[in-house]
Simulated scan of single mutants.
Amino acid sequence: MMSSNPTSSACGVAGFYRNGYRANLVENWLPTLDGVVSRLREGISVADIGCGHGHSTLLMARAFPSSRFFGFDTHEASIMEARRHAEEEGLGGQARFSLAKADEFADQQYDLICFFDVLHDLGDPVAAARHAMEVLAPGGTIMLVEPFAHDHAAGNMTLTGQLYYAASTVICCAHAISEGGHMVLGAQAGEARLTDVFRKAGFTHFRRAAETPFNMIFEVRR
């Protein structure tokens, strides 16, 4: 999740999501994307947008040593922390981290672009999706991971949903507004609104590939 908040907040966000990614990302989520794991094993370029402290990036880098990983975030202290983690784990040559906005990160013609619990925080998620379209290699895949939510509020009155609504009000929506708030999705956007973001950006394939009680995982392609 991208954050312009103080470092303590960024640490909290990184810690909140880290264990879920450790439990699910490599073993359960990536295999649900058509053909992606085999390509990662062969060696491709991967972008992790809103990488924070780099936990998601480094989990993939460790699992797929033939691929190259690029993490981007707007929070300088988080990027420094991600670089430190990479060096400690001996992955500094395989995973690189840079300051960049979600709609401005460098074009490496990525075969896989990941948005881990970040799209709903952005002031202009459609612009981020359009940029992803521009820098996505032919045949490439977008992996979108978002907090679990039904399309209507009545379906989200669970303990998890209430937690996410609270976080959405205090953190997610506030962050999107701080970036101009073209479309303030919040943490309970639901599949229909997320689909609409990528349709507006020009994508034609949007599939829910997996879910947990806490996350929805989508495969997006041209």
Rank of each mutant, 00 (worst) to 15 (best):
N5I: 05
T7F: 08
T7A: 09
T7I: 11
S8P: 04
G12H: 04
R18A: 14
G20T: 10
V26R: 02
W29N: 09
G35I: 00
V36N: 05
V37N: 10
S38R: 12
I44D: 00
S45Q: 08
V46C: 04
D48R: 07
G54W: 02
G54T: 00
L58S: 00
A61E: 00
A61V: 09
F69A: 05
F70K: 02
F70H: 01
F72D: 04
H75V: 05
E76M: 04
E81S: 03
R84S: 15
H85N: 08
H85V: 11
A86P: 11
E87K: 12
E87Y: 14
L91H: 07
G92S: 15
Q94T: 11
A95C: 08
R96G: 01
F97D: 03
S98W: 00
E104W: 13
F105A: 06
D107V: 11
Y110E: 03
V118L: 09
L122P: 03
G123A: 12
P125D: 14
V126S: 07
A128R: 06
A128M: 10
R130K: 12
E134Y: 09
P138C: 05
T141W: 04
I142A: 06
P147V: 08
D151I: 05
N156T: 01
M157K: 09
T158N: 06
G161Y: 07
A167D: 14
S168E: 03
V170K: 14
C173Y: 04
A176Y: 12
G180S: 12
H182C: 14
H182W: 09
G186C: 13
A189W: 06
G190E: 02
V197D: 00
R199L: 08
K200C: 10
K200S: 09
G202L: 07
F203L: 04
F203R: 05
F206T: 11
T212D: 15
R221H: 13
R222T: 00
R222Y: 04
